[in-house]
Design a protein around this nucleic acid. Structure first.
Lengths: 148, 148
DNA sequence: CTGAATATTTCAGGTTGTCAAGTAACGAGG
DNA sequence: CCTCGTTACTTGACAACCTGAAATATTCAG
């Protein structure tokens, strides 16, 4: 390798990049929360609804994807259900399981939410196609690293 | 420009990159929260303590940096103060102002916290120096975009 | 059929967050 | 000097998020 990665202690450049990523994370979050707020959703509700807009999921699976306790999911689904964006269905294969599914209205809101995510356009607007390709490659390699 | 950035609707590549950034954000957050938890801190407490480990700040300024209401900062500082990690000092120049400052113990914890942030090493470990330089440049350009 | 395991909910308790109201101090104009 | 508007912070009420433990219903292995 040209430059053996120093795994002992992060060098100056690495720290700089980590800080930049922190800024990106902060910016992304701000954006996500305010997009959710525009639809009278909290961040957690928006994330859950986005997941369900793809496919119905059991509560347990939702908790795994959101990385929280199942008991927490109950409340979030309750609030979305009371607004008619989500519904609970029985799982025909296992009567213990309840499948949470987005309603038609829920899918509509999720779609609007996706489209109002400004982060999709603004920060990337300054990058040309080649740069986006390069960025994609770098990010993919970062994510390929071991999980925990 | 070689490839005029399409500002109307995001193309396939852009969407892909946005999704990758979402993954990075999720990964960063997980990492940050679990690093904070290792020190018996919540994410909000860890962020506030990190800010104060650099310099004392008035409550008002903290609220601005954390992008929340000042009344919220009161509680977070309260909890950190009750654990001896932060203290409130009067501002000699303005008696309305209270300066929150990390104690010596608070700075020690903040330093440990920084060092236990695995995200600093793992995801970047797979990238060589040139790639980190490229990534830094791309991220910097993304952040240079207009605020809101 | 029994008992361990799984899926979900409920409840208590803590943290984060908002908003409105209250207190203290600053600062400018009369 | 005094008053008035502004600023900094805190308090209280309330909602959402989150965890952990206990309760219920169902599944599944033996």
């Amino acid at each position: 390798m040209a430059t053996p990665p120093n795994t002992r202690r992060p060098d100056e450049l690495t720290l700089e990049v980590v800080e930049l990523i922190g800024d990106i994370v902060a910016r992304y979050h701000e954006d996500y929360e305010s997009a959710a707020a525009e639809h009278s959703l909290t961040g957690a509700q928006a994330r859950l609804l986005s997941l369900l807009s793809l496919e119905p999921l059991p509560m347990r699976k939702l908790a795994q994807k959101l990385k929280c306790e199942p008991s927490n999911v109950t409340g979030i689904v309750d609030r979305l259900e009371s607004r008619g964006l989500v519904e609970r269905r029985p799982d025909p294969a296992d009567r213990r399981v309840k499948l949470a599914a987005a309603t038609q209205e829920g899918r509509r809101v999720a779609k609007n939410l996706r489209e109002s995510l400004r982060f999709a356009r603004e920060p990337l607007a300054g990058l040309g196609r080649e740069e986006r390709l390069a960025l994609r490659g770098l990010l993919q390699r970062m994510l390929r690293q071991p999980e925990s």
